[in-house]
Design a protein around this nucleic acid. Sequence first.
DNA 1: CGCGCTATTGATGGTCGTCAACCGCTGTGG
DNA 2: CCACAGCGGTTGACGACCATCAATAGCGCG
Lengths: 230, 230
Amino acid sequence: MKSPANIEKTVAVFSQSGIFKGLDLDAQRDLAEMAVTKQYAKDDIVFQPQDPCDAFTMVIEGLIRVSRCSATGKRLTYLLAGPGESINLVGPFTGAPRDNIAEATDDTVIAAIERNNFIAFAFEHPQVIINIIETLGQAVDSANSRILDMLDKRVAERLKRVLNTLFKKYGPVLNFNAVEIAELASTTTESALRVMGNLRKKGIIDKMRGQITILKPEALVDPEIKDLWI
Amino acid sequence: MKSPANIEKTVAVFSQSGIFKGLDLDAQRDLAEMAVTKQYAKDDIVFQPQDPCDAFTMVIEGLIRVSRCSATGKRLTYLLAGPGESINLVGPFTGAPRDNIAEATDDTVIAAIERNNFIAFAFEHPQVIINIIETLGQAVDSANSRILDMLDKRVAERLKRVLNTLFKKYGPVLNFNAVEIAELASTTTESALRVMGNLRKKGIIDKMRGQITILKPEALVDPEIKDLWI
DNA sequence: CGCGCTATTGATGGTCGTCAACCGCTGTGG
DNA sequence: CCACAGCGGTTGACGACCATCAATAGCGCG
């Protein structure tokens, strides 16, 4: 759990993360010493609505989907956290539960830092606080931008934006199925499938079960539109 | 500008605010001494997209609307800031411009604290940082909840939610016109008008030019649904 | 008094959510 | 090793909801 190799791996991820980037190496190593790593298998639940928050959590390896459900069971995915991304920026400061659910979409390793230790560390390193606030600002902007998209974009355009964002983040081969794409584009599975059917006919993407391949990324780009933050 | 009466007024607002609540009085007074108050008339613009942020800003009196525009000119209002609410929680920490526009909807007085002074103060009073992060968390949750509402609620339900939230925040007499309500409910002016026409026929609200009166607040409540944060 | 903005209501059509049926994998259990 | 269940993918038909356009009326301000 606390083997030197483990610590080094954790430090390596921290140093590339949006939150801890730029801290001096000693501080990052102190932090890594405080971290406990945990393993999750595909589809394991990392936290649920109602769970209080007792630890800051960052993905070391793999991918975690953070989403929120409506009363009628529709699901909105608002964060896909890969290595170096945190799945709970607010929780450690308040300890309170939120309405989100976090699930591993792959075999995943996380680093968890007990909330009080994390808070103490953050206040000793103000840049960490600033990074957190900046990231939360991006989350707010991204959510508002999705609302505007729903007002004046059709499903096809929203979906292209999602695919383009995923392409920039993960490259041309995307391991997502239609349900997951729909939850990112705020639409239904059927509509997502229909639109992707068109994109396939046009030779812009290809796909097989659970996998989408972007063939012509340039066809997805809408100039004037910023990427999403997910 | 820095008359004792002014300072006292500012302290009084700070002490009721979500961000500075609970700080000891000396600290609040120190902060108020740093603040510069400014007046805005109805429809004045407080900041615009592209404006860098150089001061933390809190409303002392009046009301400021913070919204964001889409490429096609649609506008989404995501914050109505009254006394004790801040209109830029992220900006002071990054200094960077964002895509929001802030306008006074009434004659309004704000307190502005130069960004570096504010940051220094916040780091000396960690509770302020925690309050800011908690508030940003509410903003993210509220935005996501609006997205879910657009997926599985009809315009009538969204609008009732908006009216109910405004009622709780401002009481039964609301000085908003149909355009402003539409921008809060993510719909068009016509639809907002139509729905409010129905509510009037049912005796739930009354309205005249630029003013809505809630007659039966209980008819707006949807159990199971939390209030919005706007 | 006339211009402009808000309110109001009607008519129309498009988008897309919903329901339903079907196909082809894939993995499991007999 | 095969059969079957179950899930993801695919396509079609239908219709509700609501954005859009349009036309008009009322109020306020210079």
